[in-house]
């Protein structure tokens, strides 16, 4: 894929992209075939090699959104690039939370026999998902770029406050019901060396993937903003130049 066919690509992202692709193949091979079966869980532990990195990336993504939002609000440099990184990162975060909820649910079906358990971790993760869906919805409200940036930045920081609050409440809520022990019994696993390596490989791979995705998506949003602000002018200019050539 040459740089010209992907307007958001550069040599750096191409290198990163190929490296990530190679690591992904390595992860799949190790995850599905090479790594051993767990003593207790059997082959269901293989799901962990994509589930854990997914939720890790989601947390990284939302943390990035929060940090960048704080930078935007506080700094002298009110570059809209910060806002676009926040938006791109949150979008990717939502994707990975969804993936982790689905893979976690599939894992749960195999381990606990049900697709869903009302334990603190899962419930909080579901809330995380809904909260950032709301964040993305607010980003789509319209108005000027500055309005969008300011609103979203405040919302992102509110989310950082409210998510621990929700998690705390949910933990207390579940601790009343003594059922958390059932859910926990499957998740704390003894991993041998190769399994640990595969998990680590997963985390590294997904992190690189995340960086690649944020770079491209953020640039894509920059293009979108450019089009929204003066895309029509550019199109008219292009037509005019074509007409002159003829």
């Amino acid at each position: 894929m040459s740089a010209t066919s992907t307007p958001t690509g550069t040599r750096a992202t191409r290198v990163l992209g190929f490296a990530t692709l190679a690591l992904t193949v390595w992860l799949i091979v190790f995850g599905l075939f090479v790594s051993a079966e767990d003593v207790v869980q059997g082959s269901t532990v293989r799901i962990m090699y994509v589930h854990v990195p997914s939720i890790w990336v989601a947390y990284v993504a939302f943390a990035l959104t929060a940090v960048v939002s704080a930078v935007y609000l506080s700094g002298k440099n009110r570059s809209l690039a910060w806002d676009r990184v926040a938006g791109a990162s949150a979008e990717i975060g939502v994707l990975f939370v969804a993936i982790s909820l689905i893979t976690g649910s599939l894992w749960g079906r195999l381990t606990w026999g049900t697709y869903w358990v009302w334990d603190a971790r899962l419930t909080s993760t579901a809330f995380l998902f809904i909260t950032y869906i709301g964040y993305l919805a607010v980003r789509g409200l319209g108005g000027t770029f500055r309005q969008r940036a300011r609103r979203s930045a405040v919302l992102a920081l509110l989310a950082v406050l409210e998510i621990p609050l929700v998690h705390f409440s949910v933990v207390i809520w579940r601790s009343l019901h003594q059922e958390s022990t059932v859910a926990n019994s499957g998740t704390d696993v003894e991993l041998d060396g190769l399994m640990l390596f595969t998990l680590f490989l997963g985390i590294v791979t997904f992190t690189m993937l995340f960086v690649w995705m944020v770079l491209h998506r953020q640039r894509g949003l920059a293009l979108q903003d450019a089009v929204d602000s003066h895309g029509l002018d550019v199109a008219i200019e292009q037509r005019r130049q074509e007409a002159e050539v003829r």
């Binding site: 995850g31 269901t44 599939l106 195999l110």
Partner: peptide, 14 residues
């Protein structure tokens, strides 16, 4: 691999 459909399914979804 037991439960292959679930495991492969997870990788496919991801």
């Amino acid at each position: 691999m037991e439960h292959a459909s679930f495991i492969i399914g997870s990788y496919v979804v991801t």
